[in-house]
C-alpha cells in the first residue's frame, strides 16, 4: 500500500469518526429558562353544575406539603398574591366568597357550595395516581382522617392522551388549586369530590427574578382555559 493510499485511508476513517461527533455537538437544545418549563393543567367534572354552586369558601392559608423530617423549601412571599389573584378570578367568574373573622371556618364550609383549596409541594414527587399531600389542608375539619394523601374520588387525567395519564411528577413548588363539592364530601368513605382542579408544575421552584410574573401568568391561565367556571 502506498503512502498516498495510507493517508487517504486514515483521512476517511477520521471523517467517519468526526462527522457524527460534530453532528452531535449541534444537537438542538430544549428548556433554557424556568418560564419555559411552566405547565398549567386543568380538568373538571363535566357532571357538576358550576352555575348553581357559586358560593365558595377558600382558606386564607396555602398549605405547603412538607415531608416529615424535611424543611419547607418554598417561601411564602407569594402566598397572599396567589390567594388574592385566585379570589379575583373567582369573583369575575361570578362566585361569592364566604369569609369571616367571627364565624368558624367549619361553619363557612358547611354553608358554601364548594371549597377551594390551594396546596404547594415542598418536595419533588413522582409516582402513580394521586396528588401528594392531598387533603393536608383539611386538618381542621372535625373528625377528619386522611390516609396518606389519597383522593379516592379523584378523576385522574381522563383521556389525556399525553402518555402519562396515570403517572405524575411534580417539581418542588408545584401548586394545586382544587375545587371540592361540599355537598358531596363523604365523611365515612373519606372521599373528597374534586369538581375542578388546576396544577401548575414547578411554579415556585428556583429563585428566578420573574417568579411573580410567572405566578400571575399561570394563575390567569388556569382560569383562561377553564371557561366552564364562568357560567
Amino acid at each position: 500500500m502506498s503512502l498516498l493510499q495510507s493517508v487517504r485511508r486514515y483521512f476517511i476513517y477520521l471523517f467517519f469518526v468526526s462527522t457524527p461527533v460534530l453532528f452531535f455537538s449541534c444537537y438542538p437544545g430544549g428548556i433554557e429558562y424556568y418560564n419555559e418549563s411552566d405547565i398549567v393543567v386543568t380538568q373538571y367534572d363535566d357532571n357538576f353544575n358550576f352555575a348553581s354552586n357559586q358560593n365558595y369558601f377558600m382558606p386564607d392559608t396555602i398549605h405547603h406539603v412538607v415531608e416529615e423530617g424535611l424543611e419547607d423549601e418554598v417561601d411564602r412571599s407569594y402566598d397572599d398574591e396567589v390567594l388574592a389573584r385566585i379570589a379575583t378570578h373567582m369573583a369575575t367568574a361570578g362566585y361569592t366568597r364566604f369569609e369571616s373573622d367571627e364565624i368558624a371556618d367549619s361553619v363557612l364550609v358547611d354553608s358554601a357550595n364548594v371549597v377551594l383549596t390551594v396546596v404547594v409541594t415542598s418536595t419533588e414527587y413522582s409516582g402513580i395516581g394521586y396528588i401528594p399531600g392531598g387533603g393536608g389542608w383539611w386538618g381542621w375539619y372535625p373528625g377528619w382522617g386522611w390516609g396518606g394523601g389519597y383522593y379516592p374520588g379523584y378523576p385522574w387525567y381522563p383521556g389525556y392522551g399525553w402518555g402519562y395519564p396515570y403517572t405524575y411528577s411534580y417539581s418542588t413548588g408545584s401548586m394545586f388549586i382544587e375545587m371540592i363539592d361540599e355537598d358531596g364530601i363523604d365523611h365515612f368513605e373519606e372521599v373528597l369530590p374534586v369538581t375542578w382542579q388546576a396544577t401548575i408544575n414547578g411554579l415556585l421552584s428556583g429563585d428566578a427574578e420573574n417568579t411573580q410574573w410567572r405566578v400571575d401568568r399561570a394563575i390567569d391561565q388556569c382560569f383562561e382555559q377553564s371557561q366552564y367556571l364562568f357560567n
Partner: peptide
C-alpha cells in the same frame, strides 16, 4: 383533550 375535560398549557 378530545372530550374537553382536560387542558394543558405550556411550551
Amino acid at each position: 383533550s378530545e372530550d374537553g375535560i382536560s387542558s394543558v398549557t405550556g411550551k
